Computed example of a mutant assay.
Amino acid sequence: MVSLLLKMTVSFFAVMNPIGNIPIFISLTNGYSQQQKKHTARKAAIVSLCILTVFLVLGNFIFSIFGITIHAFRVAGGILIFGIAFNLLHAKTSNAQTPHSAEKKEAEEKEDISITPLALPIMAGPGTIATVMAHTGSGSFNISNLILVFIGFALVLAISYVLFYYSTPVINKLGQGGLNVVTRIMGLILAVISIQMIAEGIKGLFPHL
């Protein structure tokens, strides 16, 4: 159980990439006081927790409504996550996890940027949702599995909150080179996870292969 929790936590950490998101948080909260940064980071983490919990609890229900199988979702989710991993391997931010220019402009004009773009699409983006639903729809689906998935993304969101709160000293300590190294490592881990998801999905769709 501990190894499964560790695997889930690492996968969520890789797809959310909280360290790589620090520069985005700093740019969005430019001019904020430390108290405002704390409030924004806390609210973004709570909103992200709510979003991911909805997909965690209603994942199978969503599958049944749209007639989606977990195997097909694993293949699609794996491809999506691999796209994110590819960008991370080149120390680039993924389009799926990064606010568009319109969202950035809107964030600059509004005081509250905790929901958009911080919670969506940065923290609880498509890749994270895909990872949650892939774990939710696994063959070993049960209450204990739900709890493990919840603990996994809750831990990473808590880490994201702490890193956002201490974003300035963290980025000063790591520097751009350090951030790039961490981003590439997360990209490599995420690429392996995505390939595994695709392989499991194809095996389920074509059991005779």
Rank of each mutant, 00 (worst) to 15 (best):
S167N: 04
H100Y: 06
E103W: 04
A107Q: 02
I151K: 03
I159T: 14
V54F: 13
I147H: 09
T40C: 03
I151Y: 06
S48Q: 06
G137P: 04
V132T: 12
V57F: 12
P121E: 07
G139C: 12
A85L: 08
I159F: 13
E111G: 15
L52H: 09
S94A: 14
T98E: 11
L118H: 03
G67F: 07
F153A: 10
I151C: 05
H71D: 15
L56Q: 07
V47E: 04
T131F: 04
S167F: 01
G175I: 05
A134I: 15
A107F: 01
R42D: 04
I151N: 11
I51C: 06
S140P: 01
A91P: 11
I151M: 10
I68R: 02
V156A: 08
T98D: 05
I65H: 05
G59S: 14
A76F: 04
T136P: 00
L89K: 14
G137I: 05
I46K: 13
S138Y: 01
F141E: 14
A96V: 09
F55V: 01
I147S: 07
G127H: 01
V132D: 07
A154M: 10
I151P: 08
V47P: 02
T116P: 00
K173G: 07
K92H: 08
A91V: 12
V57P: 07
I51P: 06
V57H: 07
A102Q: 15
N142I: 06
N145E: 12
L56T: 08
F150L: 15
V54K: 00
T69E: 13
A85V: 06
F55S: 03
F153Q: 06
A72H: 06
A85C: 11
F63A: 11
G83S: 09
K105C: 00
T98C: 05
L49F: 15
F82T: 12
A44P: 00
A44W: 03
L56H: 10
M123H: 02
A102S: 11
T116Y: 05
L49Y: 06
K92I: 10
I143S: 12
V57W: 10
H71S: 15
